[in-house]
């Protein structure tokens, strides 16, 4: 599903002394099948933005009637027009899965099975048969890398941190959403856990969820994985670019308080020393080109 955003504004506590404009005239498009990254500092509006994508935050109707600066707000996810009040939000949410920050904090059921089945039952039209639920849960736990037989009757609170998170993700993808949005999916995990989550996302991208949107503030994570990145700063979108082009703006990113990937930092330092390396900023490519340089080969 294609996601089209035009002139999106959002103000928290509108018309009160606490009013904060979280999004200012945000416009860009996420194509079908992308692995899209959203990066920004704390408070840059990235979380507010992604909550729009499945209607948890609605476009206030006052904005539609009286748009800021005269431009109509547009927000579409596939066929769904999110500025309309008539949108079927239940159908939208079945198609747009949302994994929040620290999703393990949403676990509540007595067993892993029940927790994962929660979303499936909610979104099923009518009452699902027992076999249907079972196979859906089995599949979902399988793709996140947990063994169905061993965990199905365990309390989710007895699992380790990384396992809890995978159960929570299974609970979201169990309905096979076409778009999967994740807010800091790797936050608070150890490096190995981070790697596993990223591998899981690639697995999902290739099979269940055609479009993936990842919010993160970890540049390395974004650079290694995403097709394109939107940089949020103070409620506006600064750039929407593929990672390798994005890091041509390294200095500005640093001034925005955003980190750049280690590779980009090294390239920048080398540039200052008069050595130019043209790489796509993934660790692998960088190393290959640096090694080529060391051997006296030409850098392409």
């Amino acid at each position: 599903m294609r996601i089209v955003v035009n002139h999106l504004n959002y103000i928290y506590n509108d018309r009160s002394p606490f009013a904060v404009q979280a999004l200012k005239d945000v416009s860009f498009t996420i194509e079908h099948g992308e692995f899209f990254g959203i990066i920004g500092h704390t408070g840059s509006g990235k979380s507010t933005f992604v909550q729009h994508l499945n209607g948890l935050i609605r476009v206030p109707s006052s904005l539609k009637r009286k748009p800021i600066k005269g431009d109509m707000t547009e927000l579409r996810v596939g066929e769904f027009d999110l500025t309309s009040k008539k949108t079927d939000f239940r159908a939208l949410r079945r198609n747009v899965g949302m994994v929040f920050q620290y999703p393990e904090n949403q676990l509540f059921a007595e067993t892993v099975f029940e927790d994962v089945a929660f979303g499936y039952r909610n979104f099923f039209d009518g009452k699902p048969e027992k076999g249907q639920v079972e196979s859906a849960v089995r599949e979902a736990l399988g793709i996140v890398g947990l063994d169905y037989e061993t965990v199905k009757n365990v309390s989710p609170f007895d699992l380790s941190g990384g396992q809890k998170r995978r159960v929570a993700i299974a609970g979201v993808i169990v309905t096979h959403p076409e778009v999967l949005v994740l807010d800091e999916p790797a936050a608070g995990l150890d490096p190995l856990g981070k790697q596993e989550i990223m591998r899981l996302l690639h697995r999902l991208h290739g099979s269940w969820c055609k479009t993936i949107v990842v919010v993160s503030h970890d540049m390395d994570e974004i650079a290694e994985n995403c097709t394109r990145v939107a940089v949020f700063a103070e409620g506006t979108v600064k750039y929407v670019l593929p990672p390798r082009e994005l890091f041509h703006h390294s200095e500005e990113l640093l001034s925005l308080g955003l980190d750049v990937p280690l590779t980009a930092k090294l390239c920048l330092e080398l540039e200052k020393q008069g050595v130019h390396i043209d790489c796509d900023y993934t660790t692998e490519d960088f190393l290959r080109k640096v090694l080529a340089l060391g051997k006296g080969g030409t850098v392409c």
């Binding site: 079945r94 949403q106 909610n122 979201v172």
Partner: peptide
């Protein structure tokens, strides 16, 4: 946050009869 997370999983927190609503509170 939790309400949003459960809504995203299809929990209907503000519709249905009394019994249904009480049951819907548990996941929050």
């Amino acid at each position: 946050r939790i309400m949003n997370a459960q809504k995203a999983r299809g929990a209907e927190l503000d519709s249905g009869g009394l019994a249904k609503r009480i049951r819907a509170v548990v996941p929050v």
